[in-house]
């Protein structure tokens, strides 16, 4: 197990190429939320050749639909949702420059291949630890698709947001490695 790496967003090719499956990372900077419905809309815009409401070059998308913020909070509970549902859309977003995805759960082979091809990584945050993870989110502001409610795209400012690298740019998969190591 490697030491914890501190990383600032947006991410460059060389930032992500240094990351290996199993690395613990603390992310600081801006990340964007996006889950099922928002991915569908972004994907449809790209298909029609139209501009996106957010430039995703070098950016990180966090698959999350937060709980509403209480007065005085930046955001409500905000843990990751299951990433596999975004698999159909992710390769296209990496093609236009997306560098990181944060979620939980397995990715399809095509998505892992796209990470190698376009230089991007997939991070896992602890699913179900939404109250804890919300502490690392200092500011949240809806920037697109407000009508989607919890599925709107928000710009988050995070400080030392804790994640672990699951899939790196070499095609390694921490879920496979971890399971093999502990299977009996």
């Amino acid at each position: 197990m490697s030491a914890t790496i501190r990383l600032k967003t947006p991410l460059s090719d060389s930032d992500v190429e240094k990351l290996k499956a199993g690395d613990k990372v603390l992310l600081t900077g801006v990340i964007y939320t996006g889950r099922d419905a928002a991915h569908k809309r972004l994907f449809d815009l790209l298909k029609e050749g139209k501009p996106l409401p957010v430039d995703l070059k070098g950016q990180v998308i966090y698959y999350v639909g937060p709980a509403p913020a209480k007065p005085g909070q930046a955001i409500g509970s905000a843990g990751p949702t299951t990433s596999g549902r975004m698999d159909a859309f992710s390769p296209k977003l990496m093609e236009i420059g997306l560098k990181g995805m944060i979620g939980k759960g397995m990715r399809k082979k095509e998505v892992i291949e796209a990470m190698k091809k376009y230089k991007a990584v997939y991070f896992a945050a602890t699913g179900g630890a939404g109250a804890l993870l919300a502490k690392a989110i200092k500011k949240a502001e809806v920037v697109a698709y407000e009508d989607l409610g919890p599925e709107a795209v928000s710009r988050l400012e995070v400080e030392d947001f804790p994640v672990i690298v699951v899939n790196d740019t070499e095609g390694n998969d921490l879920y496979q490695q971890g399971m093999q190591q502990y299977a009996r």
Binding site: V64, G65, P66, A67, K70, Q73, G76, S77, A78, G79, T81, G127, G128, A129, G130, A131, A134, P150
Partner: peptide
């Protein structure tokens, strides 16, 4: 802090 354990309530 009386917040949801998980955002998926």
């Amino acid at each position: 802090e009386q917040v949801a354990i998980c955002q998926d309530t």
